[in-house]
């Protein structure tokens, strides 16, 4: 594994390259697009282990942090979706520089999947394929999920939590939108998140896109169906998993569920 800084001096990003260890006949590289905030913290180890496994079976993997997240430069105040879409393009270009001889597949999880879908329209050389895992297709619902998770986290954490939290959550729509589980969200980002909608999330016509989602996730199913009716090559693959996206790592919610690792490896290898 080789860490590196890349991108422009004004927008330095942290990346980690996992070079393929063998099997020169495998000509694939994977760009891992992380989720946001607490979901990124939660999946860091999963992405690390996945990248190692991919490298062992001959697939290059590249992980990175968006500007203002993880170890990349920038503050949380600077975070916004359009910049992050460009960061995916920058990471894609970096991976092309490292392994331009390989087909590049993008794996995105949660908001990372949404950003990947958006960014695919922006890069001059689109990825060969995309695997989008539990994409966010309803931004307003996503913000509500995070608000509720934020209040739940505070209530779980304090010895005697403030009993007014739930009233504020119910009665004040803007409460807890600037502080999403301990990650600051500037007004521009909040607007952008709420604007995410299946109607405004067209898939780029890359060779193939696989969407992994819970079979009961109706909004994602409808979104995929809508894309297919526009003749975009996309398939919906059911994927139920035990990962709780916004939880802290603890023994009763495995950090790297084996079934998740196996499924993602299989989808990326195809």
């Amino acid at each position: 594994m080789k860490p590196m800084l890349f991108g422009t001096p004004e927008r330095r990003l942290m990346g980690l390259h996992h070079p393929a260890e063998s099997r020169p006949e495998v000509r694939l590289a994977v760009l891992l697009c992380p989720p946001l905030g607490q979901e990124q913290i939660r999946t860091q180890r999963l992405y690390r282990v996945l990248a190692d496994r991919l490298a062992r079976i001959g697939i290059d993997a590249f992980r990175f942090d968006y500007f203002g997240t993880g170890d990349s430069a920038g503050d949380e105040e600077d975070g916004e979706l359009e910049g992050w879409q460009r960061d995916i393009g920058t990471a894609h270009a970096q991976l092309q520089r490292l392994r331009g001889d390989r087909r590049i597949v993008w794996l995105g999880a949660r908001l990372g999947a949404t950003l990947a879908a958006q960014a695919a329209h922006l890069v001059p050389d689109a990825p060969a394929r995309m695997v989008l895992w539990d994409p966010v297709v309803d931004g307003a619902a996503y913000v509500e999920e995070l608000r509720a998770a934020h209040v739940d986290a505070i209530e779980q954490s304090y010895c005697i939590p403030d009993r007014g939290l739930r009233r504020r959550l119910a009665d004040e729509p803007e409460a807890f939108t600037d502080d999403l589980l301990g990650f600051f969200a500037a007004p521009a980002l909040r607007r952008q998140l709420r604007d995410i909608s299946a109607l405004r999330l067209p898939l780029a016509p890359v060779e193939d896109t696989t969407v992994l989602a819970d079979p009961d996730n109706a909004p994602v199913a409808r979104w995929v169906e809508g894309q297919r009716s526009g003749e975009v090559p996309v398939r919906l693959a059911p994927f139920r998993h035990p990962l709780v996206w916004t939880s802290d790592p603890h023994p009763n919610n495995a950090m790297v569920p084996a079934e998740v690792l196996q499924r993602l490896q299989a989808e990326l290898r195809e």
């Binding site: 607490q38 913290i41 860091q44 180890r45 997240t69 993880g70 170890d71 503050d75 949380e76 589980l181 301990g182 990650f183 802290d248 790592p249 603890h250 950090m255």
Partner: peptide
């Protein structure tokens, strides 16, 4: 802190460092 990676819970270690 526990199993959380070097960024720390809520990325606090990054915020501390900066």
């Amino acid at each position: 802190m526990g199993a959380t990676y070097r960024a720390g819970p809520r990325r606090i270690n990054v915020k501390i460092a900066r």
